Computed example of a mutant assay.
Amino acid sequence: MTRVLITAGASGIGLVMAEAFAGTGARVWVTDVDAAALAALPPGIRGTHADASSEPAMELLFAEIARDWGGLDVLCANAGIKGPTAAIEDMGLEAWHQCLAVNLDGAMLAAKHGARLMKPAGRGCMIFTSSTSGLYGTPFRAPYVAAKWGVIGLMKTVAMELGPHGIRANAICPGSVNGPRIDRVIEAEAAAKGMTPDAVRQGYASGTALKRLTDPEDVAGLALFLASDAARMISGQALAVDGMTYNVDP
């Protein structure tokens, strides 16, 4: 039975991924910092309260996985926050550091400890959640963009290092995904630009070839594919799930 770990898996994209993997019969373990969301996990999905950007927390988590599962087949490094929305001249260093800690440090720690479990088995799959913001710049989102570009660079390096050990690594780059997080992003961007939230949302949708925002299920579907044998020769790739974004400044 496939053993899957998803960081930040108790809500949003992470939860939809967890439910999708569980639906295939996989054993699924998620982490999150939201205790209420963890308490509401569907039956059959195991949850641990842990900060993905804390090395002590990750060490404890992976030690527990090694003890209880004996290994790990799929790692979804999904933890992330939207970070501040501000012009670069107004960007606070503390907010910058916090955004990079969760989005980039969290991905590195997951890969570091995941590799230690996967290498002895000679196989495994790592899936990093980046963003289309990791493929180009996004105004007023400097720390988030920097972190998501960093995630792609991390993924490519991990794919090179771990490929000889039978471990694949790829990144999913969602566009604007329907849900509470994009609602908060849109509200903040609307305030920064002096626009209405509806106008910003419509701009996001009209900037894609398919003229709509992405659903979490679209992202989960790609994760299932990347973790499957059908993707056994796909590694080191950053794959967009965004309806083909071509206007990055709505």
Rank of each mutant, 00 (worst) to 15 (best):
M1L: 04
I6W: 10
I6V: 14
I6P: 09
T7F: 09
T7M: 12
G12H: 07
I13E: 04
L15Y: 12
V16D: 11
A18L: 13
E19G: 05
F21R: 11
A22Y: 05
A22R: 15
G23Q: 12
G23E: 14
G25N: 05
W29E: 07
W29G: 01
T31F: 10
D32T: 07
V33L: 14
D34I: 12
A37R: 13
L38G: 11
A40H: 06
L41G: 00
P42W: 06
P43N: 03
R46N: 06
G47T: 13
T48F: 15
T48D: 14
H49C: 08
H49N: 09
A50D: 11
E55T: 03
E55Q: 12
E59V: 13
E59S: 03
E59N: 01
L60Q: 05
L61I: 09
F62T: 06
I65E: 12
I65S: 02
I65C: 01
D68E: 15
W69N: 02
L72E: 11
D73W: 12
V74R: 04
L75I: 13
L75A: 01
C76F: 15
A79H: 03
G80I: 06
K82F: 02
T85R: 02
A87R: 11
A87E: 15
M91D: 04
M91I: 04
L93P: 01
A95P: 02
W96K: 02
H97Q: 12
Q98V: 01
C99W: 07
A101M: 05
A110V: 09
G114V: 09
A115G: 14
K119Y: 01
R123I: 07
T129N: 14
S133V: 02
G134P: 01
G137F: 03
P139F: 14
R141N: 05
A142G: 03
P143M: 13
V145T: 15
A147V: 10
K148R: 06
K148I: 07
K148N: 08
W149A: 04
V151Y: 13
G153M: 10
L154F: 14
M155W: 10
V158C: 11
V158Q: 03
V158H: 00
H165E: 13
G166I: 07
G166E: 09
G166Y: 10
R168Y: 13
A169Q: 04
I172S: 09
C173L: 08
P174Y: 05
P174H: 05
G175T: 03
S176E: 12
N178V: 04
R181E: 09
I182S: 04
V185S: 08
I186K: 02
A190K: 00
K193V: 07
K193E: 14
G194Q: 09
G194P: 08
G194K: 04
P197F: 03
P197D: 06
Q202K: 08
Q202G: 00
Y204A: 04
S206Q: 10
G207S: 08
A209T: 15
L210Q: 13
K211I: 11
K211S: 05
R212K: 15
D215N: 06
D215R: 07
E217H: 02
V219T: 06
A220R: 09
L222C: 10
A223G: 09
A227M: 10
R232P: 00
M233N: 07
I234K: 02
A238I: 05
L239P: 07
L239S: 10
L239I: 15
V241S: 02
G243P: 07
T245Q: 10
D249F: 14
D249I: 13
D249T: 14
P250G: 13
